[in-house]
C-alpha cells in the first residue's frame, strides 16, 4: 500500500492555505486556534511525505516534535482564551485590543 509523496505535498499545500485563510478571515479566537492546528497538521503531512520519499526516518521524528509543540501551543492558547473570557465575556479577536498603545 503506497501513495505518491507528490500527491501528499499537494494536499498539504491546500490544507495549509485553508488554515491560513482561517486565521486571517475568522474573528472567533477558538476557530483561529483550530486553523493553526490545521496548518501545523499540513506541515506534518509534508514532513511525512518527504520522509517517505527520501526513506529517512528524520522526517517522522520531526512530526513527533511538531505534535508536542502543537500540544503545548493549544494548551497555552486555550488557557489564554479562558482568561480573556473571564476578563471580557467575549471571544472575538476584534475586541482584544487591550495591549494597544
Amino acid at each position: 500500500m503506497e501513495i505518491n509523496p507528490n500527491f501528499c505535498l499537494s494536499i498539504s499545500l491546500i490544507l495549509f492555505t485553508i488554515g491560513t485563510a482561517g486565521v486571517l478571515l475568522r474573528r472567533s479566537i477558538i476557530v483561529i486556534l483550530m486553523s493553526i492546528e490545521l496548518m501545523l497538521n499540513a506541515v506534518n503531512l509534508t514532513f511525512a511525505a518527504f520522509s517517505a520519499q527520501l526513506r529517512s526516518m528524520d522526517g517522522q521524528i520531526f512530526v513527533f516534535f511538531v505534535m508536542a509543540v502543537a500540544a503545548a501551543e493549544a494548551v497555552v492558547g486555550l488557557a489564554i482564551l479562558i482568561a480573556l473570557f473571564r476578563l471580557r465575556g467575549e471571544t472575538d479577536a476584534d475586541g482584544m485590543n487591550r495591549l494597544r498603545w
Binding site: I3, C8, L38, L45, A48, A52, Q60, F64, A71
Partner: peptide
C-alpha cells in the same frame, strides 16, 4: 481532518506517527 491525515501517515509508511496522531492529536 486529523483522522484523514493519520490515514495519509499510514499510507506513507509511518505507523507510529499515525498512532500518536489519533491518540494525542
Amino acid at each position: 481532518n486529523l483522522a484523514s491525515a493519520a490515514i495519509f501517515f499510514l499510507l506513507l509508511g509511518g505507523q507510529f506517527i499515525a498512532a500518536i496522531q489519533v491518540i494525542v492529536y
